[in-house]
């Protein structure tokens, strides 16, 4: 009895020792900086730095300046569009790979679908700007077939295309993972009970893979709304996204308090999305 307790205490101490480095690291280099940023967001910028007077001025500014509020709205619109489009494009692709492609070629098909991950993220956005430009490849082909040219470069459409490209690859992976986890006999059972392919999909496959899709969609939302590179390279300064506004404060105005306040707003948006997803997952019947 006492020996067992001794082992348990020793186990606990060992567990704490092993976890401590990661915990300390997280506290020092993640929690502290975040707390500092929250504090700074309540300070004010001066010509050469900041003063530590506490106020909500930066947040008031966010809600009263149409350009700032507009940037948040732009970001939300772009992100939601991208998330929906990517899921719609990726789900059938993942489905085809999981169901139609012979098992031994599935890995190859998946690898092929994510190979462009290994081009640099920045270079990929840049490549899209080349593809979509007025004299770019897409218009070159359209002209060759005598079709009207598209003006896609430097626009919100270009941002959405660039993002959708990246997140379709990501979602094919995550959705495929949840599709292959389905036990095959479940579908067979449904078929034996007389369900057609559409009914099987609607009542069996979709509900069971939806949690995986939701997690992928949340990941897409979180990564997309926080990204600076894609809107900066592909957006053509047409409408500002929230991360661009943050970087304007850092790069041009040296206004760290405002940048911090906007970052907190960004975090709040991601948290809201997370809560929405968590709540949806908890709902009975889902």
């Amino acid at each position: 009895m006492s020996r067992a307790l001794g082992i348990e205490a020793r186990d606990r101490r060992r567990a704490m020792l092993l976890t401590a480095p990661a915990l300390v690291w997280t506290l020092v280099f993640f929690v502290l900086p975040f707390a500092l940023m929250a504090a700074i967001s309540l300070w004010q910028a001066t010509a050469t730095g900041m003063i530590r007077t506490w106020s909500l001025d930066n947040y008031t500014a966010f809600f009263t300046r149409p350009a700032y509020l507009g940037a948040a709205l732009n970001s939300i619109e772009i992100t939601v569009t991208v998330t929906v489009l990517s899921v719609l494009l990726a789900y059938p692709m993942a489905w085809i790979i999981a169901e139609e492609v012979p098992r031994r070629y599935q890995r190859l098909a998946l690898t092929l679908a994510v190979i462009p991950f290994w081009t640099s993220y920045i270079v990929r956005s840049y490549a899209w700007s080349l593809v979509l430009s007025r004299k770019g490849v897409v218009n070159d082909w359209l002209a060759g077939w005598g079709l009207p040219l598209l003006d896609l470069a430097n626009s919100r459409a270009a941002v959405v295309i660039g993002f959708t490209h990246f997140f379709t690859m990501l979602l094919v992976l995550t959705i495929y993972a949840s599709l292959v986890q389905l036990p095959p006999n479940l579908r067979r059972a449904a078929a034996d009970l007389g369900a057609g392919p559409v009914a099987i999909f609607r009542h069996v496959v979709l509900p069971l893979t939806l949690p995986g899709v939701m997690v992928g969609a949340f990941l897409t939302f979180a990564l997309c709304i926080g990204d600076y590179v894609t809107p900066q390279i592909l957006g053509g300064g047409k409408d500002l996204a929230l991360p661009q506004l943050v970087m304007l404060q850092v790069g041009r105005r040296a206004d760290l308090p405002m940048a911090s306040a906007l970052s907190i707003v960004l975090m709040a948006l991601v948290t809201l999305a997370y809560l929405a997803m968590a709540r949806w997952m908890k709902e009975p019947g889902k």
């Binding site: 900086p33 940023m37 979180a222 990564l223 926080g226 990204d227 760290l256 911090s260 960004l266």
Partner: peptide
């Protein structure tokens, strides 16, 4: 994992 890299970078820069 769920925090934007931009926010992590800014927090570290300030620190």
């Amino acid at each position: 994992l769920s925090v934007s890299y931009l926010v992590i970078g800014l927090g570290l820069l300030a620190s």
